[in-house]
Design a protein around this nucleic acid. Sequence first.
DNA 1: TTCGAGTCAAGAACAATGTTCGTAAGCGTC
DNA 2: GACGCTTACGAACATTGTTCTTGACTCGAA
Lengths: 245, 245
Amino acid sequence: MLAAMNLPVPPWQTPKKRPAKQPLSREAIVAAALTVLDAEGLDALTMRRLAEELGTGPASLYAHVKDKEELYDLLIDAVCAEVRVPEASAEDWEERVKDFVRESVRVLTSHRDIGRIAMARIPTGFNVLRVADGMLGVLKAGGLSDQDCAWAVDILSLYANAHSYESSLFEQKLAWQENMLEVPFFEQLAEYYKALPADTFPNLAPMAAVMLTGNGDDRFEFGLDLLVRGLASRRPTVSPEVRPA
Amino acid sequence: MLAAMNLPVPPWQTPKKRPAKQPLSREAIVAAALTVLDAEGLDALTMRRLAEELGTGPASLYAHVKDKEELYDLLIDAVCAEVRVPEASAEDWEERVKDFVRESVRVLTSHRDIGRIAMARIPTGFNVLRVADGMLGVLKAGGLSDQDCAWAVDILSLYANAHSYESSLFEQKLAWQENMLEVPFFEQLAEYYKALPADTFPNLAPMAAVMLTGNGDDRFEFGLDLLVRGLASRRPTVSPEVRPA
DNA sequence: TTCGAGTCAAGAACAATGTTCGTAAGCGTC
DNA sequence: GACGCTTACGAACATTGTTCTTGACTCGAA
């Protein structure tokens, strides 16, 4: 058919069909993915669902994103953009380190299920590196050796990610069982632990109650305390103000 | 057709058709799963592949195992059976704690990809509990409070699992890239880090070399050292032999 | 103005996966 | 010898990530 195409478009009709909705970029995909993720969780984040959110088909996404893995990388980086990097200082050093890790898990757990994909990624994205750089700065202010600082970044990130991972999966499991089970599962677990035979588990059986004390945050704080105490004990010099003048 | 079934079976023919191969139990399934896992990795461990390994169809497995998740639980428990639980003692306490964690990751990394499914499982299996009980015993010998011991079991397990997870995924990624890439990826990463702009990453850029120093074991030892130092510093009393008599 | 190359979108399809349905076979008991 | 009851399992279903291929549109040059 002969189409009269190059006429000035009459204003009462939509000028073109394709770029009516904005033309689908990496950024738009990542933003939509975060929307789906926060609203419906990781299991709902399929390429089809994501395409639907963008008003297109799943195949279109692969023009902008190589893999689902690459999408995950982009998601992590986008989330890391929200981490507020503090300034480094030797004062209150231990608390500053702790606060940074707390801030990381705050962001990581503020987006639903993001913890489940955060682990075991080699940091290359801009925002991930920005966070690592900030962490390195905070650590170096404590006077640790360069090698200790470098590895500490690794370990603290691992800890933050691992906690977020467990937290995310635990929350999911909890929500799932809440809908399916009548007795709240935690009581079930408490019963189970208390019923352990004391002769087979001489240490565990008497401590059933203590094992179940505290929520995820308490445990996180405990582990964080261990790590930071360990770091502090590796400082070659004690803090300058208590050093003999 | 009329089948003469209740005749005494002639010894020169296989007596029955069904129980010729042994009748498919949880144990057999778990054993076969471990075989497939060790030989071909987690991605190859599909219900079909597992059924094939047992000479049956995938549907048959679901009579003995509720889920793939339950299969994973059983796998973890089976692997935990290999962990050698040491005896508790106050002597060389810190090194004993370390050795126990080392033993855990040794087992966890000795089976291919098992680290990828070890995290975020609520410990209920016999062998998992046995390991937790042993860990608790070793920790208590150090004189920590009950609450500290309980949470330390959690944190140390989390650390062992997280390290195994990363190690497993990292090894997979490394093996994959080794076949596809010509330049060994680690050099690529080193180049990338060294090329980071120093004005945007003032801490990271000068430390590119240090960041990449050490393999997974070194980093694991470093984190383990942090945790155990932290635990030691929480001991209410220093070790008895240095206490004033 | 027209053609042609090139880019982007997207429907359809493919292969693989976990899981369930329905049916059949064997075993124990009345 | 017939009836349950457990176990086995081929076939099928729904969902997933991903690719193939066709079509729509853009833009630059003849």
